[in-house]
Design a protein around this nucleic acid. Structure first.
Length: 106
RNA sequence: GGAGAGGAUCAUAUAUCUGCUGUCCCGCUUGCGGGAGAGAGGAAAGUCCGAACACCAAAGGGCAGGAUACUUCUUAACUGGAAGUCCUUGUGAAGGGGAGCUAGCUCCACAGAAACAAACCGCCGAAAGGUAAGGGUGAAAUGGCAGAGUAAGAGCCUGCCAGAUUCUGACGUGAGUCAGAAUGCUCGGAAAGCCUUAUCCGGUGCAAUGCCAAAUAGGGAAGCAGUCUUCGGACCCGGAUUUGCCCGAUCCGGUUUGCUUUCGGGUAGGCAGCUUAAGCCGGCUUAAAUGUCCCGGUUGGGAAUAGCAAUAUUCGGCUUAGAGAAAUAGAUGUAUGAUCACUUGUUAGGUGAUUAACAGAAUUCGGCUUAUGACCGUCUCCGACA
RNA sequence: CGGGAUGUAGCGCAGUUCGGUAGCGCACACGGCUGGGGGCCGUGGAGUCGUAGGUUCAAAUCCUAUCAUCCCGA
Protein backbone atom coordinates (compact mmCIF):
# COMPACT_ATOMS: atom_id res chain seq x y z
CA UNK A 1 0.00 0.00 0.00
CA UNK A 2 1.20 3.50 -0.78
CA UNK A 3 -0.28 7.01 -0.62
CA UNK A 4 -1.10 9.26 -3.57
CA UNK A 5 0.96 12.46 -3.33
CA UNK A 6 0.66 14.27 -6.67
CA UNK A 7 -2.08 16.38 -8.22
CA UNK A 8 -1.76 14.44 -11.48
CA UNK A 9 -2.70 11.13 -9.86
CA UNK A 10 -5.69 12.69 -8.09
CA UNK A 11 -7.00 14.11 -11.39
CA UNK A 12 -6.48 10.70 -13.00
CA UNK A 13 -8.87 9.20 -10.46
CA UNK A 14 -11.36 12.07 -10.77
CA UNK A 15 -11.48 11.59 -14.57
CA UNK A 16 -12.75 7.98 -14.45
CA UNK A 17 -13.93 6.07 -11.39
CA UNK A 18 -16.64 4.01 -9.74
CA UNK A 19 -18.38 5.81 -6.88
CA UNK A 20 -19.60 4.35 -3.58
CA UNK A 21 -21.27 6.29 -0.76
CA UNK A 22 -20.75 5.36 2.88
CA UNK A 23 -22.25 6.96 5.94
CA UNK A 24 -19.14 9.04 6.70
CA UNK A 25 -16.98 8.75 3.57
CA UNK A 26 -17.20 8.84 -0.22
CA UNK A 27 -15.05 6.29 -2.12
CA UNK A 28 -13.74 6.84 -5.69
CA UNK A 29 -12.05 3.74 -7.18
CA UNK A 30 -10.18 3.50 -10.52
CA UNK A 31 -9.22 0.08 -11.81
CA UNK A 32 -5.66 -0.18 -13.16
CA UNK A 33 -4.76 -3.24 -15.21
CA UNK A 34 -1.77 -5.11 -13.85
CA UNK A 35 -1.74 -3.23 -10.54
CA UNK A 36 -0.19 -5.21 -7.74
CA UNK A 37 -0.85 -2.80 -4.87
CA UNK A 38 -3.36 -0.20 -3.76
CA UNK A 39 -2.70 3.57 -4.06
CA UNK A 40 -4.80 5.51 -1.59
CA UNK A 41 -5.46 9.27 -1.37
CA UNK A 42 -7.35 10.91 1.48
CA UNK A 43 -9.25 14.18 0.98
CA UNK A 44 -10.61 16.13 3.96
CA UNK A 45 -12.12 19.50 3.13
CA UNK A 46 -12.81 22.52 5.35
CA UNK A 47 -16.42 21.44 5.76
CA UNK A 48 -15.26 18.76 8.22
CA UNK A 49 -13.91 21.24 10.79
CA UNK A 50 -10.80 23.14 11.81
CA UNK A 51 -7.23 21.96 11.22
CA UNK A 52 -7.04 19.85 14.38
CA UNK A 53 -10.22 17.98 13.55
CA UNK A 54 -9.21 17.46 9.89
CA UNK A 55 -5.85 16.05 10.95
CA UNK A 56 -7.54 13.68 13.39
CA UNK A 57 -9.80 12.29 10.67
CA UNK A 58 -6.82 11.76 8.34
CA UNK A 59 -4.82 10.03 11.09
CA UNK A 60 -7.66 7.72 11.97
CA UNK A 61 -8.20 6.77 8.32
CA UNK A 62 -4.47 6.14 7.85
CA UNK A 63 -4.32 4.06 11.04
CA UNK A 64 -7.21 1.89 9.85
CA UNK A 65 -5.64 1.41 6.40
CA UNK A 66 -2.31 0.31 7.90
CA UNK A 67 -3.98 -2.23 10.14
CA UNK A 68 -5.94 -3.69 7.20
CA UNK A 69 -3.42 -3.12 4.39
CA UNK A 70 -3.78 -6.72 3.13
CA UNK A 71 -7.53 -6.40 2.51
CA UNK A 72 -7.53 -3.36 0.22
CA UNK A 73 -8.76 -3.46 -3.41
CA UNK A 74 -6.13 -3.18 -6.16
CA UNK A 75 -5.85 -0.04 -8.26
CA UNK A 76 -6.29 3.57 -7.19
CA UNK A 77 -8.65 4.71 -4.47
CA UNK A 78 -9.57 8.18 -3.17
CA UNK A 79 -11.42 8.50 0.14
CA UNK A 80 -13.29 11.78 0.68
CA UNK A 81 -14.48 12.64 4.18
CA UNK A 82 -18.03 13.91 4.65
CA UNK A 83 -18.78 16.65 7.14
CA UNK A 84 -20.23 14.27 9.75
CA UNK A 85 -16.94 12.38 10.04
CA UNK A 86 -15.40 15.16 12.10
CA UNK A 87 -17.66 14.49 15.08
CA UNK A 88 -17.68 10.69 14.91
CA UNK A 89 -15.68 8.41 17.18
CA UNK A 90 -13.20 5.69 16.25
CA UNK A 91 -15.70 2.80 16.32
CA UNK A 92 -18.05 4.43 13.79
CA UNK A 93 -15.21 5.35 11.44
CA UNK A 94 -13.71 1.84 11.56
CA UNK A 95 -17.11 0.22 10.98
CA UNK A 96 -17.94 2.48 7.98
CA UNK A 97 -14.52 1.98 6.38
CA UNK A 98 -14.61 -1.80 6.91
CA UNK A 99 -18.06 -2.35 5.41
CA UNK A 100 -17.45 -0.24 2.29
CA UNK A 101 -13.93 -1.47 1.57
CA UNK A 102 -15.13 -5.09 1.61
CA UNK A 103 -18.01 -4.02 -0.65
CA UNK A 104 -15.65 -2.45 -3.16
CA UNK A 105 -13.33 -5.48 -3.19
CA UNK A 106 -16.13 -7.92 -4.11
C1' G B 1 -20.28 34.87 51.65
C1' G B 2 -21.44 37.57 47.01
C1' A B 3 -20.01 40.82 42.94
C1' G B 4 -15.83 42.76 40.47
C1' A B 5 -10.57 44.83 38.97
C1' G B 6 -5.85 43.82 37.53
C1' G B 7 -1.33 40.34 37.62
C1' A B 8 1.70 35.74 37.57
C1' U B 9 2.01 30.39 36.45
C1' C B 10 0.74 25.68 34.11
C1' A B 11 -1.28 23.58 29.66
C1' U B 12 -2.38 15.95 33.22
C1' A B 13 1.17 12.05 34.01
C1' U B 14 2.38 7.09 32.91
C1' A B 15 2.24 1.67 30.98
C1' U B 16 1.42 -2.01 26.92
C1' C B 17 0.59 -3.32 21.65
C1' U B 18 0.72 -1.46 16.58
C1' G B 19 2.84 2.59 13.62
C1' C B 20 4.94 7.71 11.18
C1' U B 21 9.05 11.78 9.85
C1' G B 22 14.10 13.55 10.07
C1' U B 23 19.33 12.89 12.37
C1' C B 24 23.59 9.73 13.82
C1' C B 25 26.01 4.79 13.95
C1' C B 26 26.55 -0.34 12.07
C1' G B 27 25.69 -4.04 8.24
C1' C B 28 25.42 -5.46 3.47
C1' U B 29 22.09 -7.10 -1.22
C1' U B 30 22.92 0.43 -2.53
C1' G B 31 18.10 0.90 -0.98
C1' C B 32 16.79 -1.98 2.41
C1' G B 33 17.60 -4.09 7.54
C1' G B 34 19.08 -3.31 12.75
C1' G B 35 20.29 0.00 16.89
C1' A B 36 20.53 4.87 19.50
C1' G B 37 18.45 9.47 20.22
C1' A B 38 14.84 13.66 18.76
C1' G B 39 9.86 15.09 17.25
C1' A B 40 3.73 21.28 17.95
C1' G B 41 1.89 26.26 20.98
C1' G B 42 0.77 30.04 24.60
C1' A B 43 -1.55 31.46 21.50
C1' A B 44 1.77 27.48 16.51
C1' A B 45 -4.28 31.15 14.92
C1' G B 46 -5.64 36.23 12.72
C1' U B 47 -1.79 38.18 9.24
C1' C B 48 -2.44 43.89 12.21
C1' C B 49 2.71 46.35 12.93
C1' G B 50 8.27 46.11 13.11
C1' A B 51 12.96 43.75 11.71
C1' A B 52 16.51 39.94 9.71
C1' C B 53 17.44 37.59 4.94
C1' A B 54 17.02 37.41 -0.71
C1' C B 55 16.33 39.68 -5.45
C1' C B 56 15.14 44.18 -8.37
C1' A B 57 15.78 49.57 -8.67
C1' A B 58 18.75 53.71 -7.13
C1' A B 59 23.65 60.60 -7.92
C1' G B 60 21.06 64.21 -4.88
C1' G B 61 16.56 66.88 -3.93
C1' G B 62 11.32 67.85 -4.39
C1' C B 63 6.03 66.61 -5.44
C1' A B 64 2.39 62.85 -4.94
C1' G B 65 0.97 58.66 -1.77
C1' G B 66 1.04 56.08 3.00
C1' A B 67 1.85 55.73 8.37
C1' U B 68 2.32 57.99 13.20
C1' A B 69 0.91 62.16 16.76
C1' C B 70 0.62 64.43 25.52
C1' U B 71 5.81 63.92 28.19
C1' U B 72 10.22 61.27 29.70
C1' C B 73 12.68 56.74 29.55
C1' U B 74 13.27 51.98 27.09
C1' U B 75 13.86 48.78 22.54
C1' A B 76 17.84 46.46 16.88
C1' A B 77 13.03 48.42 15.30
C1' C B 78 7.74 49.12 15.89
C1' U B 79 0.42 51.07 15.70
C1' G B 80 5.65 47.71 21.11
C1' G B 81 6.74 48.30 26.68
C1' A B 82 7.36 51.13 31.64
C1' A B 83 6.51 55.41 34.57
C1' G B 84 4.16 60.08 34.67
C1' U B 85 0.60 64.06 33.06
C1' C B 86 -4.33 66.14 31.51
C1' C B 87 -9.43 64.87 30.05
C1' U B 88 -13.15 61.29 30.68
C1' U B 89 -16.18 56.67 32.58
C1' G B 90 -17.02 54.04 37.17
C1' U B 91 -19.26 54.22 44.47
C1' G B 92 -14.33 51.94 44.08
C1' A B 93 -10.08 48.70 42.73
C1' A B 94 -9.30 50.40 37.88
C1' G B 95 -10.57 51.22 32.40
C1' G B 96 -10.48 54.31 27.84
C1' G B 97 -8.49 58.47 25.20
C1' G B 98 -4.57 62.70 23.79
C1' A B 99 -0.95 67.82 17.88
C1' G B 100 -3.68 72.05 15.41
C1' C B 101 -10.96 74.86 14.02
C1' U B 102 -6.61 82.76 16.74
C1' A B 103 -4.11 79.63 8.32
C1' G B 104 -7.96 78.56 4.68
C1' C B 105 -12.24 75.80 2.56
C1' U B 106 -16.60 72.88 3.59
C1' C B 107 -20.87 70.99 6.50
C1' C B 108 -24.39 71.79 10.69
C1' A B 109 -31.10 67.83 9.07
C1' C B 110 -36.08 69.35 11.49
C1' A B 111 -37.48 73.56 14.18
C1' G B 112 -36.22 78.63 14.45
C1' A B 113 -35.90 85.73 12.75
C1' A B 114 -31.05 83.95 12.52
C1' A B 115 -26.44 78.10 12.57
C1' C B 116 -21.41 82.54 11.98
C1' A B 117 -23.69 86.31 8.43
C1' A B 118 -25.41 90.24 10.04
C1' A B 119 -30.07 90.88 8.09
C1' C B 120 -35.74 90.36 9.73
C1' C B 121 -39.67 91.43 13.54
C1' G B 122 -39.23 94.61 17.56
C1' C B 123 -37.26 99.13 20.42
C1' C B 124 -35.58 104.40 19.71
C1' G B 125 -35.60 108.32 16.23
C1' A B 126 -38.91 113.57 12.12
C1' A B 127 -35.41 111.23 8.94
C1' A B 128 -30.63 109.49 7.96
C1' G B 129 -29.69 105.91 11.02
C1' G B 130 -28.64 103.50 15.91
C1' U B 131 -29.33 98.83 18.65
C1' A B 132 -28.18 93.18 19.80
C1' A B 133 -32.16 94.13 25.70
C1' G B 134 -36.63 91.15 23.87
C1' G B 135 -38.15 86.84 19.61
C1' G B 136 -38.12 80.06 23.01
C1' U B 137 -36.83 76.96 18.52
C1' G B 138 -32.86 73.77 18.90
C1' A B 139 -27.80 69.27 20.40
C1' A B 140 -25.76 74.12 19.99
C1' A B 141 -27.95 81.27 19.84
C1' U B 142 -21.81 85.73 21.49
C1' G B 143 -21.18 84.02 29.93
C1' G B 144 -24.62 84.84 34.59
C1' C B 145 -26.67 88.29 38.59
C1' A B 146 -27.06 93.33 40.28
C1' G B 147 -26.15 98.44 39.60
C1' A B 148 -24.90 102.69 36.85
C1' G B 149 -25.86 104.65 32.10
C1' U B 150 -28.93 105.92 27.47
C1' A B 151 -33.36 108.68 22.79
C1' A B 152 -33.47 103.15 23.03
C1' G B 153 -29.69 99.81 24.25
C1' A B 154 -25.18 97.01 24.76
C1' G B 155 -18.82 94.49 29.13
C1' C B 156 -19.94 100.79 26.95
C1' C B 157 -18.66 101.23 32.49
C1' U B 158 -18.58 99.26 37.95
C1' G B 159 -18.96 95.09 41.73
C1' C B 160 -19.32 89.72 42.56
C1' C B 161 -19.22 84.74 40.33
C1' A B 162 -17.63 81.31 36.11
C1' G B 163 -14.12 80.76 32.18
C1' A B 164 -10.09 82.19 28.51
C1' U B 165 -5.35 84.30 27.14
C1' U B 166 -0.71 86.50 28.46
C1' C B 167 3.17 87.55 32.00
C1' U B 168 5.93 86.58 36.63
C1' G B 169 7.50 83.31 40.62
C1' A B 170 8.06 78.25 42.91
C1' C B 171 8.38 72.85 41.92
C1' G B 172 9.45 69.23 37.93
C1' U B 173 14.39 66.63 32.77
C1' G B 174 9.43 67.31 30.57
C1' A B 175 4.06 67.02 29.59
C1' G B 176 2.34 69.97 33.49
C1' U B 177 0.86 71.56 38.71
C1' C B 178 0.40 75.52 42.40
C1' A B 179 0.38 80.84 43.64
C1' G B 180 0.10 85.98 42.11
C1' A B 181 -0.79 89.87 38.53
C1' A B 182 -2.69 92.01 33.99
C1' U B 183 -6.24 92.25 29.82
C1' G B 184 -13.67 93.15 29.52
C1' C B 185 -10.57 89.09 26.41
C1' U B 186 -15.99 85.93 26.69
C1' C B 187 -13.88 84.09 20.17
C1' G B 188 -20.18 78.29 18.38
C1' G B 189 -19.38 72.85 16.96
C1' A B 190 -17.14 69.12 13.55
C1' A B 191 -10.14 67.73 11.74
C1' A B 192 -12.37 59.05 13.52
C1' G B 193 -14.62 66.27 6.94
C1' C B 194 -10.90 68.33 3.27
C1' C B 195 -6.70 70.09 5.36
C1' U B 196 -2.16 72.38 8.24
C1' U B 197 2.31 71.29 11.15
C1' A B 198 6.23 67.78 12.73
C1' U B 199 8.67 62.94 12.16
C1' C B 200 9.33 58.41 9.32
C1' C B 201 8.78 55.34 4.77
C1' G B 202 12.33 52.73 -2.55
C1' G B 203 9.65 48.04 -4.40
C1' U B 204 8.60 42.78 -4.14
C1' G B 205 8.49 38.68 -1.14
C1' C B 206 11.19 31.85 0.87
C1' A B 207 5.98 30.18 -4.63
C1' A B 208 12.19 35.42 -2.58
C1' U B 209 16.70 33.51 -4.59
C1' G B 210 20.77 30.02 -6.30
C1' C B 211 22.19 25.13 -8.52
C1' C B 212 21.24 20.32 -11.37
C1' A B 213 18.07 18.99 -15.23
C1' A B 214 14.12 14.09 -18.53
C1' A B 215 10.63 13.74 -22.68
C1' U B 216 8.34 16.68 -26.73
C1' A B 217 8.49 21.03 -29.93
C1' G B 218 11.40 24.98 -31.77
C1' G B 219 16.59 27.62 -32.37
C1' G B 220 22.38 27.50 -33.38
C1' A B 221 26.65 24.40 -35.13
C1' A B 222 29.00 20.02 -37.38
C1' G B 223 28.83 15.45 -40.21
C1' C B 224 26.52 11.88 -43.70
C1' A B 225 23.14 10.82 -47.81
C1' G B 226 28.37 11.56 -54.66
C1' U B 227 31.56 10.40 -58.25
C1' C B 228 34.71 12.47 -62.23
C1' U B 229 36.98 17.11 -63.14
C1' U B 230 40.97 21.00 -66.97
C1' C B 231 36.76 23.91 -61.36
C1' G B 232 33.91 26.07 -66.70
C1' G B 233 31.12 21.83 -66.12
C1' A B 234 29.46 16.55 -66.97
C1' C B 235 26.99 12.39 -65.11
C1' C B 236 23.82 11.41 -60.69
C1' C B 237 19.75 12.67 -57.12
C1' G B 238 15.35 15.71 -55.87
C1' G B 239 11.54 19.25 -57.35
C1' A B 240 8.69 22.17 -60.96
C1' U B 241 6.82 23.02 -66.04
C1' U B 242 5.70 20.69 -70.65
C1' U B 243 -2.16 17.56 -71.37
C1' G B 244 -3.27 11.86 -67.81
C1' C B 245 1.32 8.14 -68.03
C1' C B 246 6.46 7.00 -70.06
C1' C B 247 10.72 8.81 -72.71
C1' G B 248 12.73 13.33 -73.92
C1' A B 249 13.38 18.73 -73.35
C1' U B 250 13.75 23.33 -70.32
C1' C B 251 14.40 25.62 -65.53
C1' C B 252 15.70 25.42 -60.32
C1' G B 253 18.18 23.11 -56.20
C1' G B 254 21.94 19.58 -53.87
C1' U B 255 23.71 26.16 -48.53
C1' U B 256 16.96 22.40 -49.90
C1' U B 257 15.30 18.07 -47.40
C1' G B 258 16.06 13.79 -44.25
C1' C B 259 19.02 11.36 -40.53
C1' U B 260 22.84 11.43 -36.73
C1' U B 261 25.79 14.05 -33.18
C1' U B 262 26.30 18.30 -30.32
C1' C B 263 25.44 23.42 -27.90
C1' G B 264 22.84 26.95 -24.99
C1' G B 265 18.05 28.68 -23.04
C1' G B 266 14.46 26.23 -20.31
C1' U B 267 9.42 23.13 -18.58
C1' A B 268 8.10 18.69 -15.49
C1' G B 269 11.01 17.02 -11.56
C1' G B 270 15.02 17.28 -7.92
C1' C B 271 18.68 19.77 -4.46
C1' A B 272 19.99 24.02 -1.53
C1' G B 273 17.69 28.17 1.14
C1' C B 274 15.78 24.97 6.16
C1' U B 275 16.83 25.67 11.21
C1' U B 276 21.54 27.07 16.93
C1' A B 277 18.58 30.85 18.95
C1' A B 278 17.89 39.34 18.31
C1' G B 279 18.65 32.24 23.84
C1' C B 280 19.31 30.53 29.40
C1' C B 281 22.63 29.38 33.77
C1' G B 282 27.32 29.65 36.32
C1' G B 283 32.56 31.24 36.78
C1' C B 284 36.62 34.93 35.42
C1' U B 285 37.41 40.06 34.36
C1' U B 286 35.57 45.10 34.42
C1' A B 287 33.28 51.41 36.39
C1' A B 288 29.56 48.50 33.56
C1' A B 289 27.25 41.62 30.02
C1' U B 290 32.45 45.67 29.72
C1' G B 291 34.35 41.08 26.85
C1' U B 292 39.58 42.41 19.44
C1' C B 293 37.94 46.92 16.30
C1' C B 294 34.21 49.73 13.18
C1' C B 295 29.07 50.52 11.24
C1' G B 296 23.92 54.36 16.72
C1' G B 297 23.35 47.52 17.00
C1' U B 298 24.43 40.61 22.08
C1' U B 299 20.87 39.69 15.06
C1' G B 300 23.31 41.16 10.66
C1' G B 301 27.50 43.33 7.62
C1' G B 302 32.77 44.65 7.22
C1' A B 303 37.91 44.47 9.06
C1' A B 304 41.97 42.28 11.98
C1' U B 305 44.16 37.93 14.38
C1' A B 306 44.45 32.31 14.74
C1' G B 307 43.50 28.10 11.57
C1' C B 308 44.57 24.05 5.32
C1' A B 309 39.36 24.79 5.95
C1' A B 310 34.81 24.66 8.50
C1' U B 311 35.13 28.02 12.19
C1' A B 312 36.64 30.74 16.58
C1' U B 313 37.64 35.52 19.15
C1' U B 314 36.58 35.45 28.23
C1' C B 315 35.75 30.12 29.80
C1' G B 316 32.42 26.04 30.83
C1' G B 317 27.58 23.81 30.78
C1' C B 318 22.32 23.40 29.09
C1' U B 319 18.15 23.75 25.50
C1' U B 320 17.73 22.56 20.19
C1' A B 321 10.80 19.93 15.28
C1' G B 322 12.25 20.69 10.16
C1' A B 323 7.76 18.28 6.93
C1' G B 324 6.80 19.18 1.68
C1' A B 325 -1.00 16.30 -0.85
C1' A B 326 2.68 18.05 4.35
C1' A B 327 5.28 13.32 9.98
C1' U B 328 4.91 14.32 15.45
C1' A B 329 -0.01 9.19 15.88
C1' G B 330 -4.12 4.97 16.68
C1' A B 331 -6.21 1.70 20.33
C1' U B 332 -6.67 -0.22 25.37
C1' G B 333 -5.68 0.56 30.58
C1' U B 334 -4.07 3.00 35.47
C1' A B 335 -3.55 7.39 38.51
C1' U B 336 -4.61 12.74 39.24
C1' G B 337 -8.19 16.85 38.22
C1' A B 338 -13.49 18.50 36.76
C1' U B 339 -19.01 17.63 36.45
C1' C B 340 -23.30 14.61 37.66
C1' A B 341 -25.83 10.61 40.31
C1' C B 342 -26.06 7.17 44.47
C1' U B 343 -24.30 5.97 49.30
C1' U B 344 -21.77 5.94 54.34
C1' G B 345 -19.35 6.42 59.87
C1' U B 346 -21.06 13.76 56.45
C1' U B 347 -15.59 20.33 57.23
C1' A B 348 -14.35 13.83 55.02
C1' G B 349 -14.60 9.37 52.14
C1' G B 350 -16.44 5.31 48.76
C1' U B 351 -18.89 3.48 44.12
C1' G B 352 -20.57 4.33 39.12
C1' A B 353 -21.05 7.27 34.67
C1' U B 354 -19.42 11.27 31.35
C1' U B 355 -15.92 14.60 29.06
C1' A B 356 -10.82 15.95 28.18
C1' A B 357 -10.63 24.04 27.10
C1' C B 358 -8.90 26.86 22.76
C1' A B 359 -6.40 24.88 19.13
C1' G B 360 -1.67 22.02 14.57
C1' A B 361 4.72 24.47 13.00
C1' A B 362 5.51 25.62 6.95
C1' U B 363 11.93 31.09 6.15
C1' U B 364 13.18 33.13 11.11
C1' C B 365 12.67 36.54 15.19
C1' G B 366 10.32 40.87 18.43
C1' G B 367 5.40 42.58 19.49
C1' C B 368 -0.09 43.44 19.00
C1' U B 369 -5.03 41.39 18.64
C1' U B 370 -8.41 37.48 19.17
C1' A B 371 -10.01 32.25 21.20
C1' U B 372 -9.72 29.39 25.75
C1' G B 373 -9.38 25.40 30.67
C1' A B 374 -7.33 25.32 35.56
C1' C B 375 -4.85 27.26 39.73
C1' C B 376 -2.29 30.98 42.85
C1' G B 377 -1.64 35.37 45.44
C1' U B 378 -2.94 41.06 45.48
C1' C B 379 -6.66 44.90 45.51
C1' U B 380 -11.93 47.20 45.51
C1' C B 381 -17.24 47.44 46.71
C1' C B 382 -21.54 45.26 49.20
C1' G B 383 -23.72 42.06 53.10
C1' A B 384 -23.45 39.17 57.82
C1' C B 385 -21.03 38.02 62.54
C1' A B 386 -17.43 39.24 66.53
C1' C C 1 2.83 35.09 1.38
C1' G C 2 0.05 39.16 -0.58
C1' G C 3 -4.41 41.87 -2.56
C1' G C 4 -9.76 42.80 -2.82
C1' A C 5 -15.22 42.52 -2.21
C1' U C 6 -19.73 41.57 0.48
C1' G C 7 -22.95 41.21 5.11
C1' U C 8 -29.80 45.71 5.40
C1' A C 9 -37.48 42.21 6.22
C1' G C 10 -38.46 34.91 4.71
C1' C C 11 -35.56 35.59 -0.51
C1' G C 12 -33.07 38.98 -4.14
C1' C C 13 -31.34 43.98 -3.88
C1' A C 14 -31.33 49.98 -3.24
C1' G C 15 -29.80 53.55 0.38
C1' U C 16 -23.16 54.45 2.59
C1' U C 17 -20.32 59.23 -2.03
C1' C C 18 -21.29 64.35 1.14
C1' G C 19 -24.18 61.56 8.83
C1' G C 20 -30.49 63.52 10.30
C1' U C 21 -37.38 60.03 7.07
C1' A C 22 -34.83 52.57 6.24
C1' G C 23 -37.02 51.74 1.06
C1' C C 24 -38.17 48.53 -3.84
C1' G C 25 -39.64 43.73 -6.12
C1' C C 26 -41.16 38.70 -5.03
C1' A C 27 -43.20 36.06 -0.94
C1' C C 28 -46.85 36.41 3.59
C1' A C 29 -51.75 38.09 6.08
C1' C C 30 -56.59 40.53 5.47
C1' G C 31 -60.46 42.68 2.36
C1' G C 32 -62.88 43.45 -2.59
C1' C C 33 -64.14 41.95 -7.87
C1' U C 34 -65.74 35.88 -9.40
C1' G C 35 -70.38 30.54 -8.42
C1' G C 36 -65.05 28.79 -7.28
C1' G C 37 -59.78 28.95 -8.74
C1' G C 38 -56.27 31.94 -11.24
C1' G C 39 -55.54 36.99 -12.08
C1' C C 40 -56.19 42.13 -10.81
C1' C C 41 -57.06 46.13 -7.17
C1' G C 42 -56.59 47.99 -2.15
C1' U C 43 -54.75 47.70 2.95
C1' G C 44 -51.24 45.79 6.43
C1' G C 45 -47.39 43.21 9.27
C1' A C 46 -42.44 41.90 9.45
C1' G C 47 -35.58 45.14 10.41
C1' U C 48 -31.85 46.53 17.67
C1' C C 49 -28.78 47.44 9.02
C1' G C 50 -23.12 40.63 10.89
C1' U C 51 -20.98 41.61 16.22
C1' A C 52 -18.48 44.89 19.93
C1' G C 53 -16.47 49.56 21.22
C1' G C 54 -15.65 54.73 19.96
C1' U C 55 -16.29 60.00 17.47
C1' U C 56 -20.76 63.11 17.23
C1' C C 57 -26.42 66.70 19.49
C1' A C 58 -27.41 62.53 16.18
C1' A C 59 -24.26 56.52 13.02
C1' A C 60 -26.89 51.54 8.17
C1' U C 61 -23.44 55.68 6.70
C1' C C 62 -17.32 58.02 9.85
C1' C C 63 -13.10 55.36 12.86
C1' U C 64 -11.04 50.87 15.35
C1' A C 65 -11.25 45.76 16.48
C1' U C 66 -13.57 41.21 15.42
C1' C C 67 -16.77 37.20 12.99
C1' A C 68 -18.60 34.87 8.57
C1' U C 69 -18.83 34.14 3.25
C1' C C 70 -16.71 34.76 -1.56
C1' C C 71 -13.01 36.15 -5.30
C1' C C 72 -7.99 37.14 -7.32
C1' G C 73 -2.37 36.95 -7.85
C1' A C 74 2.72 34.82 -7.10
Amino acid sequence: MRFIRSTREYHEVYAGHEKRHGALFLFLRRRVSGAEECSVGIVVSRKVGNAVRRNKVKRRVRAYLREHSGQLPLGKLVIIAKSSSGTSNWADIAEDLGRNLTGIRE
